[in-house]
Design a protein around this nucleic acid. Structure first.
Lengths: 152, 152
DNA sequence: CCATTAAATGTTATGTTATAACATAACTTA
DNA sequence: TAAGTTATGTTATAACATAACATTTAATGG
């Protein structure tokens, strides 16, 4: 079983548990995300979708699938770059309470890394102390240069 | 001296120290941000700019001023909502090492609050340990409901 | 003070990202 | 199998942002 197959299987499992439907179209978009090396814009994904699956697809097709995947935590949206990528932690089962994305401005690579538990609880505490209520898990997007690009 | 005047004076001081120019146009856009109750989109600001200052202004005028103000740390861009607001901590002098924005999805209000120092250093540490180098101060955008909206 | 350069602004056009709105089809459930 | 719900197809357009080049204004050095 390949890496993508394993992740897809986990994603399907997740959907069954949540009582939501992993339709063919959603799976196809998930597949596109999984086979990419890095984050993609919605229109890049649309182009690939048209090539690989359905030549006359329109933007709402992609945006709807992406919205679904993001809601389910199977993909993430990087709002600072308007890009989308598959969640890198679908198969592992540590909670997704806080995530940091390290975005290399040089090569475009993204590294997804869990936020330290203590940092999360400090954040939660300062948020709660202001009476603010959030469902969402915080996503932090940090721009800079990755280890590899720093060498060169 | 009014609140906005005080902030504008601090902003000008900041620009002098940095050797950059607070031109009339930039000051006007800063003024617009300061007189708003909440974050605004670039096109909302453009409309206000046209009404108050220059009826034939075009998008680049606003985007250039906003880019400048954001670069100087005098304003922030909320990438999750494509909105802009004046920095709430121009006159105080604690460093802006990390900022959390609490965005109320109900009433649209935004609260800007400094990130706890220990949370910042934990983040920095996990970022550094991956060989990632960043100049930028992390901005975290957290969506939810504000204290006021939770009451109602 | 004037020439040169650099920085900012004016202006036109267009690129990119995202969604509204409504029609149709496919699933779900009783 | 009818009724309700969820998903998809399709057209059009809204919202956000920048490229490119002309012009003006400010800064700098002789």
């Amino acid at each position: 079983m390949s890496r993508t197959d394993r992740i897809l299987a986990s994603a399907e499992q997740h959907c069954r548990e949540q009582g939501v439907r992993m339709t063919p179209q959603r799976r196809q978009v998930m597949m596109l995300l999984l086979t990419q090396s890095g984050p993609q814009s919605a229109y890049q994904l649309l182009d690939q979708f048209k090539t690989q699956y359905q030549s006359n697809a329109q933007p709402p097709t992609i945006y709807r699938a992406l919205d679904f995947l993001v809601q389910q935590g199977l993909a993430h949206r990087l709002s600072s770059t308007n890009q989308y990528l598959a969640c890198d932690h679908i198969t592992c089962h540590h909670g997704h309470q806080g995530t940091v994305f390290l975005l290399c401005d040089d090569c475009g690579a993204v590294q997804e890394t869990p936020m330290a538990g203590s940092a999360i609880s400090e954040l939660q505490q300062s948020i709660n102390s202001l009476g603010f209520v959030t469902q969402q898990n915080p996503l932090l997007e940090v721009h800079g240069r990755c280890a590899n690009c720093n060498v060169h």
